[in-house]
Design a protein around this nucleic acid. Structure first.
Lengths: 195, 195
DNA sequence: CGAATGACAGATTTCAAAATCTGTCAGCAC
DNA sequence: GTGCTGACAGATTTTGAAATCTGTCATTCG
């Protein structure tokens, strides 16, 4: 009946489009099927439930964020403290940009992430791992104070949650936000540098 | 008609009671008037609007939190870093206790605070001032690294927002929360101590 | 006279009926 | 057979009419 084959990927893309237009409360699988020109029964052939479909959307979105972010983090930037500063700065900038360019869509993904918290915590796990790698390096080279890298990485992420946790997105527009994030990062870097 | 005089204070107390019972969405000034055995017109003699009444409630509540907290902070605790640790720990504990003992009421006050953000930021200003005083002392005595006390105080508050900002109240029940707050506080204290 | 009342207009909320949606599945089309 | 459709039951959402609420004020009460 249709040229294209209709696979899970297409359905996820269509769902993303409907979410973009109607927001998380009002997107129905019937809307998704309509956009694809297909009956809603066909969507249920590929996903067992609406929840599973929404989970696939947020998973794919966070995977893309992860890839963007890993690319930004790859820069060498000599001393570990500076590499860490670069990583955190890139992380904040990436999120702030997304939140600013389309606040409603960002809010939509935030709802999906809250709905599927295991996917969200996997994402947090990835962020911790990125930080942990730099911290472990720095401790190895004697640039950073000794300690358990995993614990330190988690503390760093917790201490900066105001600047990366989507819960705080509403505050990211306020004038002093950039300066405040820099002060917090400076505080943290002083805290982990070897004495 | 009634023994008691009916002043603003009584009305605020009655409003608090109605908020406790019905939550922020469903409390009406008619309910408040009913609880007081008075017509709603009388309430409007003391407050120009429902918003002003709600503001008075959150203001009084935050004033009480402030007083409790100032009492807890008054302990000497020798070195400035330890005084600061005590202050932060007391702050977290006070909020966590309130959130745990009655989560719905806590959520209610959170709604009121969001509604009247100028009152909330005055409260934040108070918290900053408490921290600033200790930091300024510590810098003066050479125990803490040099810097602008106000800026440092604000950075400390921002770095710990995950543990005191009501936005994060839902996360305060998770098992590792206490340990994580201790790690963040340790990180911060290392960051501000003189080298 | 000062304090409280209750009727009122317009705004907001509630509630039940109607519409729509989710998830299943027997059957149609290729 | 494989992939899709559309009818269906029960759950959820929308809708608009009725009820309630906010804020004002002329009037009453002591």
């Amino acid at each position: 009946m249709r040229g294209e084959p209709l696979d899970a990927e297409m359905i996820v893309s269509a769902t993303e489009e409907v979410l973009r237009r109607h927001g998380p409360e009002k997107t129905t699988v019937l809307d998704v099927a309509r956009l694809l020109g297909v009956s809603h029964g066909s969507v249920y052939r590929h996903f067992p439930s609406k929840a599973a479909l929404r989970e696939a959307v947020i998973r794919r979105w966070l995977d893309r964020v992860r890839d963007d972010f890993a690319a930004a983090a790859r820069g060498p930037g000599r001393p570990p403290a500076e590499r860490l500063r670069g990583l955190l700065t890139a992380m904040f900038a990436a999120k702030w940009a997304k939140a600013k360019e389309d606040p409603e869509l960002f809010a939509t993904f935030r709802v999906l992430a809250a709905e599927h918290s295991s996917v969200a915590s996997a994402h947090v796990g990835f962020l911790v791992e990125q930080i942990r790698a730099i911290v472990a390096d720095g401790i190895g080279s004697g640039d950073l104070a000794a300690g358990e890298p995993e614990v330190i990485a988690r503390a760093v992420l917790n201490a900066t949650s105001r600047f990366h946790d989507p819960l705080h997105a509403a505050e990211w527009n306020t004038p002093g936000a950039v300066a405040e994030s820099e002060h917090v990062v400076a505080l943290i870097l002083d805290g982990i540098r070897a004495r």
